Amino acid sequence: MFFQTTMHTLLEIVLRDLSTDTLDDSLEKLRFLFPETLLLGALDLIDRDSVIMYKTPWGRAQYEVLGSTATYTVFPGLPSSKGYASAYCTCPAYAYSVLLSETQLMCKHVLATMLGRRLERCIERPIDADELASVIARQCSL
């Protein structure tokens, strides 16, 4: 528990300093927090423009990440009773590695969303209420 809280705190610091650090310094810090395969997977998703932010006229953002086999919904910045901002992803890797075995802090989709938001590399798509309802319905039927 202490280890996860510390790691989440370090991640928040790295993300906050991402724009002031050189990219190489930030990547080196992220390599300390995450396995290289997870970090490279997240960066690859950003490079392929796979992080989509649906933005409503009233300011709500809904995130999807286009994975290699499916599209996953990511909920970044959820409130947590553990003292740090949490996140959730609908992918199987999140369910297994984060929730069940607790071997990872997050999956590559969550990391890609967090990095994409900070680097302003999310593909932003405006969406109205009806379209948002369709997106949510599609996500719930997965």
Rank of each mutant, 00 (worst) to 15 (best):
T90G: 13
V110K: 04
G59E: 09
Y84P: 01
Y54N: 14
G83F: 02
S86L: 02
H109N: 10
R48V: 00
G41E: 15
T56N: 09
Q4D: 01
D44C: 10
E36C: 07
R48E: 11
L39Q: 12
P79G: 00
E36I: 10
T69I: 10
I127E: 00
L40C: 09
F75P: 00
T56L: 11
P35S: 02
Q104M: 08
M1Y: 00
T37C: 05
E64Y: 04
T9P: 03
Q104D: 12
C107M: 08
T22K: 06
E36T: 14
K108Y: 04
P57Y: 07
K29I: 01
S101E: 10
R31C: 14
L105D: 07
L10I: 04
Q4V: 13
A61M: 12
L10M: 13
P35V: 04
S141F: 02
A95E: 12
R118E: 14
D128N: 15
S26K: 11
L111K: 10
R60I: 10
V98F: 02
S19C: 11
I13T: 11
R118S: 10
R48C: 04
V98G: 02
L115T: 07
L105H: 04
F3E: 10
S68F: 10
T71E: 13
D24M: 13
G83T: 04
L45H: 12
M114D: 05
A87V: 05
E131T: 00
P79R: 02
V65E: 11
M114R: 15
I123D: 01
P35Q: 06
L10V: 06
E12N: 14
L78N: 12
L105N: 07
R118N: 06
Q62E: 08
L23H: 14
C140K: 11
M7L: 12
W58F: 12
L115P: 03
T5N: 08
M53W: 01
C122P: 04
I127A: 05
M114C: 11
A95S: 13
W58E: 14
L27S: 03
C122E: 14
S101C: 03
L39A: 04
Y54V: 11
I13P: 04
D44E: 15
Y84G: 06
A93V: 07
V14F: 05
T9W: 08
V51K: 10
V14M: 03
T69L: 13
A93D: 14
I123G: 01
E64W: 08
L99C: 07
L10P: 00
A87I: 03
A87K: 03
L111V: 12
D44Q: 15
R60S: 08
R16K: 15
K29H: 06
L111P: 15
G83S: 04
Q104C: 05
Y88V: 02
T9L: 04
G116I: 06
L132G: 00
R138C: 00
D130Y: 02
L30R: 05
K55E: 14
L119S: 11
R16I: 09
I52F: 05
D44M: 10
Y72W: 14
D47W: 06
E131H: 03
L39W: 09
M53C: 15
Q104K: 08
L18V: 12
F3N: 06
A42V: 11
V65S: 08
A137E: 13
C140P: 00
E36D: 15
S141P: 01
T5L: 09
R121N: 09
L39T: 14
P76D: 09
C140R: 11
D25L: 13
